[in-house]
Design a protein around this nucleic acid. Sequence first.
DNA 1: AGTCCACAGGAAGGGCAGGCGA
DNA 2: TCGCCTGCCCTTCCTGTGGACT
Length: 402
Amino acid sequence: MVQMSAFDFFEEYLDKPSLFKNPDALTLKFNPDNIPHRDKEINLIAQILAPALKQVKPSNIFIYGKPGTGKTLVVKNVLKNMEKISGSKNIPLKLIYLNCKMQNVADTEYRVVAQISREFGKDVPITGLPTNEVYNEFFSVVDDTKQVVILVLDEIDVLINKCGDNILYNLTRINENLNNAVLSIIGISNDVNFKNNLEPRVKSSLGEEEIIFNPYDALQLKEILHQRAELAFNESSFDPLVIAKCAAYAAQQHGDARRAIALFRVAGELAERANKILSEEFVDMAEKQLEKDTVMELVKNLTLQSKLVFYSIISSLKNRVTPAFTGEIFEFYNHICNRNGLDVLTQRRLSDLIGELDMLGLINAKVISKGRYGRTREISLAVDADYVNKISIWLEDDLELK
DNA sequence: AGTCCACAGGAAGGGCAGGCGA
DNA sequence: TCGCCTGCCCTTCCTGTGGACT
């Protein structure tokens, strides 16, 4: 076989026609002008926010729906249009979008308030100031000019679960302290039940208007993918059945359009690499790869102790079909730590780490009662058996375990 | 019906790192 | 340099709990 040099490879790559016309159309950051099947929601949000253009405070909005139902996309779309019109007519309007899931940016009360102040050009240190002082800075900078401020807090449930609903109480009450400006809040949550955990005073002020985004069904997903396909792919570079397959996969996962689009993109990339037209087989391959990538990414980002706990769980469950219990895991974890000269956490802390691994979807942990033999968590792996071994080896290597 | 197990999970607080202003 | 602040990770102490066992 004649070996190909890297130069030849690049040359051939450049000459080869691509399947993609505009791969950006299949990314998360892509914000299409037309969002299919969300006209009702767009109109409703636009109606609620419209008073801002006449310098009247719009109602606060609380939006919820499962991931990939278009919440963020719709809100950003409405804001984009508001910005366009307020810019052209010189209307004093400030629109701020914050994703509360972004670590070290907007995941604590201090950081959110500091980040909003920064949006107004105020330089606030990352830490070091008392929270009420940050609020004062925030009040003064917001109230500096007569304007309507619309603050979008995306994934608000993550923020509230982490640091309580005090921040929402303070933000929804802020208008009492402002003389020139007014502030409205749009809260977006993936967790439909999140609002039930809020204090009543916060619940009533945040939820002046509530909008629910229902999951897309397979047909709607197909249309969304059609729209993106036209923008992203060159003509006749994919089998039309691919769209149906991506839609079907995503419909199984509570109608997640984000997932459908990612699947479409990865399948396209795999087909391009294989020098073939995008056909159904690449969707299956993409589905497997996406799952593997997410799991590995999660594992790699775990802290040292969480990795140790996860490794203990994998090892305890090796070669058995029955689930493990907290006590066993703790015993195994102790053993591993002692053997490797690592710090050992208490069982209380381990219990929290198990809960976190469960939240990440790496394990299934269910609280059960064994009657006379106590109450514990029943723990099993949520990761595909094919990858467990691979992850285990990676962890052994990464943690330099003996 | 009462006991008891093996935890779950809440509350409080310690210790440390990092940043600020005086 | 010092005191004060936040965030984070962790421990200690405690109460609560479901259901098998007595």
